[in-house]
Structure formats: structure tokens, C-alpha cells
Simulated assay, not measured.
Amino acid sequence: MGKIVFLIGFLIAFASGSGNLVAQGDPVAGKAKALVCGSCHGADGNSTLAINPKLAGQGKAYLYKQLVEFKSGVRQNATMAAMVMGLNDEDMHDLAAYYSSQEVTLGGADPRLVDLGRSLYRAGNKDLGVAACMACHAPDGLGNGPAGFPALGGQHAEYTLAQLKSFRSGIRNNDTAKMMRATVERLTDPELEALASYLAGLN
């Protein structure tokens, strides 16, 4: 019984600590620090180039994790590695706080791909054992901030598709417990394209 009480206390303390970690960051300071990021990601985090991700409205925990992993090399990208090289922990928290406070602009889905994309997102593929995407990323595509699951709604289809394919090939491998790799490895190119297109217009 004592061990159970200790474990519960530990989990509560851990959850509280995680909440404080996510709560860190000054969006005002982050806005000033984000000036150099704007050329690729847009001044407010809504990039105009489809190959560059929109950061506006993204969860703080997820953004912070990506910055840390670009810097450590866990997530590989030469451009981002150079950009984050000089950032300290406070800088990364501030940037995450700023971008998460912005509102993402929605795109539009290809009408020909909506039905398949919606089906995969909301129901998965039971025949292949693929879970519904919304189980982690929410029905409206806003993600799960505390859990660190990213928002996907409104993201450029081209960028989303590139990331899905990178997870499938294993080039990108910074997903927790291989969750993304295990999911997309069973999906075909047309399915990934439909999913990415559907997400671009999801809100």
C-alpha cells in the first residue's frame, strides 16, 4: 500500500512539474526573438511557402521539443540545426510561447481527396490495424498540448506529406515510442496524400 501511495505521489509531482515546464516562456520576448524566423515561417508563424511548416497555434510543448531536438541532432535538418545553434533553453521556451499564442490560417483540401482523408483521420484503417489520427491529434486537429501531440489542422499539405513520408521511411525518428512510424508504415502514398490534404482544411 505504501508503495502505491508513493507512486501516486510521484506521478502527481511529475505531472505538476511537467505543467510548470510547459507554462514557461514569454510570448512578448519570443516575438522579438522570432524576427529571424519570419523569413521562412512568416512573421506570425503562418508561412507562405508550403515546404515550410506553419508554427502558429502549435502546442508549446511540441514546439519546445522540436527546437531542443534540432539542436541536439535527434531531429535532423541542416537549416534548423544552424538556426537553433545559438539558442539557450529560455530562448526556446520564449519562441514556443510566442508561436503557440498565434492563430493559424487555414488552407483548403482537395475535394477529390476529402472522403478518404476524413475516413483515415477519424476512423483509421481497421483492416491494417491503423488507429484513427484524431485519437491523438483531436477531432478538430488541434492536437493535445499537455501530451505534446502536435496540432495538424491548417498545416500545409506539402509539408505534412513530407513529414509523413519521412516517418514512414525512418528518416524522421523523433516520435515518442515510434508511434508515428508504426502508424504510417502501413499506409500507401495515395492515403498519405489524402490525409495531408484533408488536414490542410481541418479546423
Rank of each mutant, 00 (worst) to 15 (best):
M180D: 02
M80N: 09
N46E: 07
L152D: 03
Q58N: 11
D44T: 11
R112E: 15
G141L: 05
A131W: 11
D94P: 00
N203G: 10
P53Y: 03
V114I: 15
Y64I: 02
L106D: 05
N174V: 08
A151V: 06
E69P: 04
L152I: 10
Q163I: 11
G30P: 03
Q155I: 04
K71F: 02
E191Q: 15
E193W: 07
Q163E: 14
G141Y: 05
N144D: 15
K71T: 03
H41N: 03
P27H: 07
T176P: 00
C133W: 04
G57S: 05
L192H: 07
S119F: 02
K71N: 04
T105C: 00
G2P: 05
D189V: 11
D110A: 08
L161I: 02
L128M: 12
A23Q: 05
G17D: 09
I8C: 14
F149S: 10
E193R: 10
R168S: 13
N203D: 13
E193I: 12
T48S: 14
G154T: 04
Q163G: 05
L187F: 02
E90I: 09
A82P: 07
L161A: 07
T160D: 02
M83H: 09
L49I: 14
A147D: 10
T176Q: 13
F10G: 12
A123T: 13
P111I: 05
S47C: 05
M1H: 11
L152V: 09
T48Q: 15
M134Y: 06
N144Y: 02
A34F: 03
N52L: 10
L120T: 04
A81S: 14
K33N: 04
P146G: 08
G9C: 12
K126R: 14
V104T: 14
I4D: 13
A182R: 11
L152A: 07
A157V: 00
F14G: 10
H137E: 01
G38A: 15
A97M: 04
L63S: 06
R75A: 09
F70N: 00
R75L: 09
A135G: 15
N125Q: 10
K33F: 02
I51G: 07
G30L: 06
T176A: 12
Q24N: 09
K3P: 00
I51K: 12
L113I: 04
D110I: 08
D94G: 01
A131K: 14
M180A: 05
G145L: 09
E193K: 12
C133L: 03
G25D: 00
L192F: 09
C133Y: 00
H41K: 02
A56L: 07
R186P: 00
L142I: 11
K65Q: 12
A132D: 03
H93G: 01
L95W: 01
L164P: 06
G201D: 06
D189S: 03
R75M: 09
L161D: 01
R118N: 12
L87W: 06
R181F: 07
M92P: 04
G107H: 09
V36I: 15
K178Y: 13
H41A: 02
T188D: 08
A162R: 13
G25C: 04
G141K: 03
M1P: 11
V84Q: 04
N203V: 08
L120P: 01
L35T: 13
M92R: 01
A13H: 02
E90Q: 14
L7G: 11
N173T: 10
H41R: 00
M85K: 15
A32P: 03
A15W: 11
R112N: 15
V5F: 13
